[in-house]
Structure formats: C-alpha cells, structure tokens
C-alpha cells in the first residue's frame, strides 16, 4: 500500500469531474432545507451514513475483487432508485476511469461504471487495498458536497472544512467495516438509502438552470 497513491486518488484536484456535482446539496439548498452551517453538518452526517456507507462498501468490494465489476455495478443500480443519481454516478465513474488510465494500468472494465465501482478498480490498479478504496469513497461523498456548500451558501470555508475534520472518525470506521465485508455477496452489502437525496435529484434534474450537474 502506498500512502502517496491514496493521496493522489483522493485529491480533490484529481481531474475526474467531481467539481461539477454538489452531491445532492444544491437541491436541498433550493428546497430551503439547508441555509446554514448546522444544516450542512446534518446533511453531511446523513449523507455519510447512507450514500457514503454504500459507496465505501462497493469501493472496497470492487478493489478486493475487480473481476466482479459487472455484478457490483448491478448491485449499485438496485440501490440507486433515482435515474438522475444513476446518471450522475456513471458520469463520475467514466471521468474517473479516463483520468486513471493516464495514471495506472487498468484491467479491462466497462466504460460506464458507477463511481464507487470504478474507484475500487482504480484503487486496485494503483496498488491500494479495500480499506484505502473505502476511505477515499467515504471521504469523497462528503468533500464534494462540502465544497459545494461554500459556493452555494457563501459559508466560511474554514468552518466547512471543520465539519469534514469532525467526520473523519466516522469515515475511518465506515472504511474499516467496508473492508471487513469486502468479500460479502452483493445482496448482503450495505444498502442504506437517503430518500431526500433520491427525490431531490429527480426534482433537480427537471430544472432548466442549475449550478451543478447533480
């Protein structure tokens, strides 16, 4: 395991298209549900416990058994009822694979993988293990939304990064659990859902003008 490889993979400056997505926050800001730092904190905590947990589990599983990318990808399809979120996840997976092909030697995989499955495949190719893939996935589900919060609400970036720092223990715990379950059958992997993320993504997709793709 190379710590430096993990930093390269989890770096927000990796050109994998993440900056175009608010992780569902824009829809909730527009709904009036998120106006201040406390509400961002509640959003991030719930997102990490649901979408973050699932992304970490699938990144770990895909890193542990990259040859099973197709069934893992289908597993995420069944956990993502919103077509807008499936589309956003596949767009980010595609962008990640494109960036990663210039970094490491990837095995043959489908072009349009869900982002967490792509992340696991890429982590494996970069010599990382399931727990590193999972921690990058868990962190990624909150860091994108946090930076979107700064842009959407004009919040203090120091305070928002403080929220991310307070979630690191949860990210580590989720990643350790995900790694421990990396060999589980696909149906047994976590499936924690977040109804307002699903509904918000569908409403957001109907807007004519928006700052973020999702």
């Amino acid at each position: 395991m190379s710590l430096a490889s993990l930093l390269v993979l989890a770096d927000g400056r990796l050109p994998s298209g993440g900056h175009a997505h608010s992780g569902g926050l824009e829809a909730q800001v527009s709904a009036g549900r998120v106006r201040d730092l406390d509400a961002v904190a509640g959003f991030l905590r719930g997102k990490l416990a649901t979408a973050g947990l699932v992304a970490a589990a699938f990144a770990a599983a895909s890193c542990a058994r990259p040859g099973e990318w197709a069934s893992l990808d289908q597993g995420l399809d069944s956990r993502t009822p919103s077509p807008a979120l499936r589309k956003a996840s596949r767009a980010q997976g595609r962008a990640l694979l494109r960036a990663a092909r210039a970094m490491w030697s990837l095995p043959p995989v489908g072009r349009d993988l869900h982002q967490p499955v792509a992340l696991g495949v890429v982590a494996h190719a970069g010599g990382l293990g399931p727990e590193e893939a999972a921690v990058a996935a868990a962190h990624g589900t909150t860091s994108g939304a946090a930076s979107a919060a700064v842009r959407l609400l004009g919040l203090d970036p120091y305070a928002v990064h403080g929220l991310l720092a307070r979630l690191t223990a949860d990210c580590d715990r989720i990643a350790a659990d995900a790694a421990a379950r990396a060999e589980s059958p696909v149906d047994d992997l976590p499936a924690a859902g977040a109804p307002l993320l699903d509904i918000g993504a569908e409403l957001h997709a109907t807007w004519e003008v928006r700052l973020f793709a999702s």
């Binding site: 569902g24 909730q28 709904a31 549900r33 998120v34 509400a39 904190a41 509640g42 959003f43 991030l44 905590r45 719930g46 997102k47 990490l48 416990a49 649901t50 979408a51 949860d170 977040a194 109804p195 307002l196 993320l197």
Partner: peptide
C-alpha cells in the same frame, strides 16, 4: 441511533 436521519439528505423535517 441513526446518524443524520433528520438531516436534509435523509428525511429532513419529514
């Protein structure tokens, strides 16, 4: 015991 369940990602005020 459900982290963030009443936050804006899961159920909010619902």
């Amino acid at each position: 015991h459900a982290p963030g369940w009443s936050g804006a990602a899961v159920l909010g005020d619902g």
